[in-house]
Nucleic acid binder design. Structure first.
Lengths: 224, 224
DNA sequence: TGTCGATATATCGAATCGATATGAGTCCCC
DNA sequence: GGGGACTCATATCGATTCGATATATCGACA
């Protein structure tokens, strides 16, 4: 899960751990956010596997080129940072360690995105976040598989509710919990339906012509 | 988390692991269900701590007293099970190992329920499931703390969305993910509001007279 | 008879969590 | 110009949880 997320984020930008966590938190909401205790070891694993490497380049954060906003202090800090960077392996300002994706990492990312079975709950969300790398048909398939799975669960839920005539012993709170879960499930199904509808709209014609993930579109800039 | 859940479930019934998992899955939905790889070690810990112990008694499953529904096979199986039970420590039919809560376990349960800070997401749901053991005032406080926390998150979310004027770089999918999360958050807040309203209705008068968890109310039966 | 699917327990290695330590940079006020 | 509070940033530790897997029993059905 984490590896997919990290690779997906690094595909766009070189980033350091702290920033990775922030972005990930934004992707899938604070409730599902990951901890540093997972992230740093994961980065270590990825680096060891050669899917990612520490780069010295400037991290893609705010104001990459704002030459002088006053104070010499900042400049001095930058100088010190540079000196530090020279000595300690691949570290930028404020001790940052910026990672970039390698060619192997890109390949792995494509593999993971292509894999059809999504076990984890979080993983699905991460895949949605990066599904623009997928061919339209694959994307649609991803959404539909998920939708079916959730629908199955909702069905099972309903029949179970019907069958539990015996037991009794349901507090108001138990009932409330069940209602909440059902509502969440239905909301998610509706969400997927919207995504699926969006896919159909976007594709219109040009059906199943098997475009194998065109990687990077020409990408026009904002202004020349 | 798990320990709270297990103790809470055993407070009502003696149960074996498999059944515990099923009930827990029902409480907080399949998506948040726990795995056996967590459950059995947890049971072991609880047993080692003396909060729970393996009992030989009949598990509270379906048909506790349906003497003969045909087939001698069941009877034979029961006989064999009994023989097995005699030899292998505290095991019932089908290799089941039924657990019951101890006095220490009950005490610990009360402690855990009383603890005001809920870190985990799942934990909150578990606490709602067993909050009928709480004094009305504590219950209300629990709900309200949670509501406030979620409201804070929603707030943070909103302001972050406003502040990200720079960046750009939001795919349709990113936006969709954000919307989904926001909706889920709001749905949860609404749910809590309903719970809180329910509390207020239930209490009406008899405000803050500090009833310290009356344990078991007289509990009228359906029909004499 | 055998074999399939549900019930049931258990264990292993790996991933993840939550707490905590450490330290550099920034801000602000005295 | 120094000091305290706060954010940014990385890292590690022990404990929990996960997911996969192994094993065995039971009931049903052909």
């Amino acid at each position: 899960m984490l590896e997919l997320a990290v690779l997906g984020l690094l595909e766009d930008n070189d980033l350091h751990g702290y920033e990775l966590r922030k972005r990930l938190g934004e992707l899938l909401g604070q409730r599902l956010s990951i901890s540093f205790g997972s992230l740093y070891p994961a980065l270590g694993r990825l680096e060891a596997a050669g899917l990612v490497k520490a780069v010295t380049s400037r991290p893609a954060t705010r104001r990459p080129a704002a030459p002088m906003s006053g104070s010499l202090v900042g400049e001095l800090a930058a100088f010190r940072a540079q000196r530090r960077e020279a000595s300690a392996g691949g570290r930028g300002a404020r001790g940052k360690k910026v990672y970039g994706i390698t060619e192997g990492g890109r390949q792995r990312l494509r593999e993971m995105l292509a894999d059809p079975d999504v076990s984890d709950d979080r993983e699905f969300l991460v895949r949605v976040a990066f599904c623009h790398h997928l061919a339209p048909a694959d994307r649609l398939a991803l959404f539909q598989r998920r939708r079916d799975e959730l629908a199955t669960r909702a069905e099972a839920r309903k029949s179970r509710a019907a069958g539990s005539g015996a037991d009794g012993r349901v507090t108001t709170y138990l009932r409330s919990l069940r209602e909440r879960d059902t509502a969440a499930l239905e909301a998610d199904i509706a969400w997927l339906d919207r995504l699926i509808a969006g896919e159909r709209d976007g594709t219109e014609t040009s059906d199943d012509t098997e475009i194998p993930t065109p990687a990077v579109a020409p990408k026009r800039r904002n202004r020349s």
